[in-house]
Amino acid sequence: MNWTWFHKLGSPPHFYRIAGAMIPWFGWPAAVLLFAGLYGGLWLAPPDYQMGDGFRIIYVHVPAAWLSMAAYVALAVSAAVGLIWRMKLAELAARNIAPLGAAFTLLTLVTGSLWGRPMWGTWWEWDARMTSELVLLFLYLGYIALHDAFPERRTGARASAILALVGLVNIPIIHFSVEWWHSLHQGATITKLSAPSIATEMLVPLLVMALGFTAYFTAVVLVRLRVALLESERDTAWVRALGADDV
């Protein structure tokens, strides 16, 4: 198998250029999907027969939760690639996914709390789903803290990559927590083997939002990576050569 593309992708000037070209292809669809999802979720979807309009929090809570876990997997995979192949770009990717993943984890907890209060009568419960999502937040923060604790960036990247990989075990725990333990949180609605237990008019905006969140995340990570590349390669010829181009 020819791995040239892989090595080429890892080259900072090459990736900087590709990322710049890819950002609009994720950014604009993200904007369109997010606005369509907001309109569909807040306006078109019918109220829930039990929760009335209170269920509409689903359209921000569930995509945020899905992204908080997907981002962690992306972080761990990038960290592993950095660890195995000493690929600088992968190390930068892991570190730059982390704050965004932490933000979506916090968003999941906050929107979940705002949903739990009217439906369950409590802002917070130390049950399996909520606790494991809180552990995810601490994993992100711990990863960032460990990564930045070393004076040499690449040592920090290697040490924190181990933490990121160990922390992967928490992802299936979050997902299956509602089956493995008695939980206040409802079970899976969409990611189960039988048909989704949600009306199509309610489901479509949710899928649109989930897709929008994912496209948004990809675009933002690419922007963050371009910034990280410029900062870490500041004194190289390719960065200085950028000065001639218009921004």
């Binding site: 907001l38 807040l42 929760m51 009335g52 309009d53 209170g54 509409r56 929090i57 705002l114 949903w115």
Partner: peptide, 12 residues
């Protein structure tokens, strides 16, 4: 929002 305004709007 069906009386849930205080929860739905802050979440959004």
């Amino acid at each position: 929002m069906d009386g849930y305004a205080l929860f739905v709007w802050p979440a959004y």
